[in-house]
Write a protein that binds this DNA or RNA. Structure first.
Length: 111
DNA sequence: TTCTCGACTCGTCAGTAAGA
DNA sequence: TCTTACTGACGAGTCGAGAA
């Protein structure tokens, strides 16, 4: 999966699968507060401990992954909004220019 | 002041794609 | 086939705005 593609490119094409990051990641460590998993109920203590540890590790990683995923998505949307603003401004400028030349050459505007 | 509602964030689960 | 990372979906909690 391509996560770190060209940001402006992905933003301009609207391709969500390649949206990316403008600023470097800064993820802070976070405490684990989950209880043990149900799967460890009928196992020997050391196996249960290992299972619980693995589960907590997985949850912690997934938590961080979700945060990162959401951050990228927000960034992607911001990029799209910025691009939209730019394109609208550009569009307006071109329309003004068109009207100017129409007037200059005496062509009646259709709108 | 209290209640309700919508918007938002967060953690978790489940499904999927990609690499070993 | 197994593992890992990513991401959509869901439920729970929080917050602010508006109504009663």
């Amino acid at each position: 999966m391509a996560v770190a593609g060209d940001e402006t490119e992905s933003a301009s094409t609207g391709d969500m699968s390649g949206y990316q990051i403008c600023t470097p990641t800064s993820s802070l460590p976070q405490g684990v507060v989950m209880a043990g998993s149900p799967g460890s109920l009928h196992s020997p203590p050391h196996v249960a401990d290992e299972t619980t540890r693995k589960r907590q590790l997985r949850l912690m990683k997934n938590r961080q992954a979700a945060k990162e995923c959401r951050r990228r998505k927000r960034e992607y949307i911001r990029c799209l909004e910025t691009r939209l603003t730019m394109l609208e401004a550009q569009n307006k400028k071109l329309m003004d220019e068109l009207n100017y030349f129409k007037e200059m050459y005496g062509i009646k505007s259709s709108q």
